[in-house]
Every structure is written in C-alpha cells, then in structure tokens.
C-alpha cells in the first residue's frame, strides 16, 4: 500500500511537472497569464487523471476500448465532484466554465487514447514480424 502510494506520488509529480511546464510555455507563447486558482485546478486534474489511469489493473478482464471508456467516465464523475466542491468552497462556476473545463480535459484524453489505439496495432504488428523471424531462425537451425 505504501509502495503504491509512493509510486502514485512519483507519477503525479512527473505528470504535474509536464503539464505545468507545457502550460507555462503556452502562456509565454500566447502572452497569457494564469492565477493561483488555475494552478490548484491543474494539480487536482492531474491527480484525478493519474489516479484513474492507475486503475487499469482493475479492468484486465475487459477490452482496452471498454477500459478507456470506463476510465473516461470515472474521470468525468471525479471532475464533476471536484467542480461541485470548488463551487461550494471557492466560487460558483458557470455552465460555460464547466463546459470549457470538460473540453480541455476531453481533447487531450481523446488524443492520448487514439495514440494508445495506434500503438497497440503498431506494437502487435512488430511482434508478429518478430515471431515470424524467430520461427524462421528455428527452421534454419534444424
């Protein structure tokens, strides 16, 4: 349990660093600024994403496509809870704000899911070639 928590924190640290540095670069290029609230929101979103992606072991019995959809739905529910809490303790978030938030969350998710989809096909093709090569090597040896 402690090891899992340690691994989770390391992954979260890496994910947050990548996301915040990318955000900082985008701010520099676009000439925009961020505020403390956005930094916290970004961190909470990274924590949810890392947590949800860590659940992949629970979905071993289902296909990767179903796993991706389930993970997305879980992430959506957790984000909705987070937005609800923020609305209560900080300030109410408009419907437009909620939509923008989900959009900025969904687009990278779809891109990464697409990349995963491609990588499964590409990796399998490479493995198939490797198997043929191993089979040919065995035939040559005898």
């Amino acid at each position: 349990m402690v090891k899992k928590l340690k691994d989770f924190l390391i992954q979260l640290g890496c994910v947050y660093t990548i996301v915040s540095v990318t955000g900082a670069i985008a701010n520099v290029i676009g000439g925009t600024q961020t505020n403390n609230f956005n930094v916290f929101l970004m961190f909470a979103t990274c924590a949810i994403a890392t947590f949800v992606l860590n659940l992949h072991n629970m979905f071993d019995s289902v296909s990767p496509l179903v796993m991706i959809i389930l993970q997305y739905l879980i992430a959506c529910v957790l984000c909705a809870i987070m937005i609800f809490v923020i609305s209560i303790i900080y300030e109410p978030i408009s419907l437009r704000g909620v939509f923008e938030y989900y959009r900025s969350f969904t687009i990278p998710y779809i891109i990464l899911a697409g990349y995963y989809y491609y990588s499964v096909f590409s990796e399998t093709k490479k493995q198939d070639i490797l198997i043929k090569e191993i089979q040919e090597n065995k035939q040559k040896e005898f």
Binding site: S63, V66, T124, D128, Q135
Partner: peptide, 16 residues
C-alpha cells in the same frame, strides 16, 4: 507456444 503462432492480431476492441 510461439513456434505455433500463425498470426498475431488485435481486434477492434484492441484485444490482442
């Protein structure tokens, strides 16, 4: 047995 595999292929659900 990898020597008996004819083809390795993923389906549309991404199961290999």
């Amino acid at each position: 047995n990898i020597y008996k595999i004819k083809l390795l292929k993923p389906d549309m659900n991404m199961k290999v």
